[in-house]
């Protein structure tokens, strides 16, 4: 079920730099660069050519081609899917704003010192543990079917609302850990300097610690939002008619799976620029870090 899995739900928050990333800028016209570019090009053509030949010559290719890569059904389903994708975008935008706020609150609660704040720290810790432990699809299901089932008067029945709430709950747990890593990465001497001038703890956090911490965690935050974009399809399970649900409806009606491929293409077009941008930011930060560590 690769469509429903993946995302950041199976990895921890980290503000470290991944091993991969864009290499240092180098002139394209150096002979060595030309040579390595040519080698990369040839090996790519050979590799993907062989892969294509293997797929096309597979015994079931003609059925798969007709079932997944049908030009007629592609043209038929793409506009409907793009239209339904608007629901995913709305879901994503709404949840993202709520996540950024809730996660920041959780991270701040968790970083409060002293025994007085133990209950708040406990709540934030239990929250982060709980919502990182339970699979996102389960949270969506339990909320989307469970809460309206209570039949409390005035409680909303629109599954879209439960979709927003479920994604916010799950992703806030991750994003709060990202924030917290950022807060803890700011050297205590910064807080000491702020407090020594007579700023309160809250002022030190607001004006000195958080602005630096948030700047530092923007790349990992973007990574989580790439995951959130993809996980918006989880809410199809509770009856929100978004792009994945729309694809399933077409597939069930027309007995053809091409709509899923069309949806995959939509995600590629939307997500890859964000992923490239995130990698570029990470690479830029690393270059700055190296430049500063003279």
């Amino acid at each position: 079920m690769s469509l429903l899995g993946g995302g950041p739900l199976d990895r921890g928050a980290s503000i470290g730099f991944p091993a991969s990333g864009p290499p240092a800028a180098r002139s394209r016209f150096e002979p060595a660069a030309v040579k390595s570019t040519s080698i990369a090009l040839v090996s790519s053509v050979v590799f993907f050519g062989l892969l294509a030949i293997a797929v096309v010559n597979a015994p079931g290719w003609s059925e798969v081609k007709q079932q997944f890569f049908d030009a007629h059904w592609f043209a038929y389903s793409l506009p409907k899917i793009v239209n339904a994708f608007g629901v995913n975008v709305r879901l994503f935008c709404l949840a993202e704003v709520l996540i950024l706020a809730l996660a920041l609150l959780l991270a701040v609660l968790r970083s409060l010192p002293g025994p007085v704040f133990f209950p708040l720290r406990l709540i934030a810790t239990v929250y982060a543990d709980t919502f990182r432990a339970i699979p996102g699809l389960l949270i969506v299901t339990l909320l989307g079917f469970g809460v309206p089932g209570l039949g409390i008067a005035g409680i909303p029945t629109d599954p879209f609302i439960y979709a927003v709430v479920a994604l916010t709950l799950v992703y806030s747990a991750y994003v709060s850990e990202v924030y917290r890593a950022g807060i803890e990465s700011i050297h205590p001497s910064q807080e000491a300097a702020a407090r020594s001038l007579g700023l309160t703890r809250i002022q030190a956090l607001r004006y000195v610690i958080l602005p630096q911490a948030v700047r530092r965690v923007i790349p990992p935050l973007l990574n989580d939002f790439i995951g959130l974009q993809k996980d918006t399809i989880l809410v199809s399970y509770i009856g929100v008619v978004e792009a994945f649900r729309e694809s399933s409806i077409i597939q069930a009606a027309k007995f053809n799976s091409t709509p899923f491929v069309a949806l995959a293409l939509v995600f590629l077009v939307i997500t890859i620029p964000l992923a490239r941008f995130t990698d570029w930011l990470v690479g830029r930060d690393r270059r700055r870090f190296l430049a500063n560590a003279r």
Partner: peptide, 29 residues
């Protein structure tokens, strides 16, 4: 906080706020 406003301290490692301009560093408190 009131006491600290009356007592200034300067540290070995400067501890300026790196995300603020010089002027903002001075005017924040």
């Amino acid at each position: 906080n009131r006491i600290r406003r009356r007592i200034g301290i300067v540290f070995q490692s400067f501890n300026l706020f790196p995300h603020m301009s010089v002027l903002r560093n001075v005017t924040l408190a």
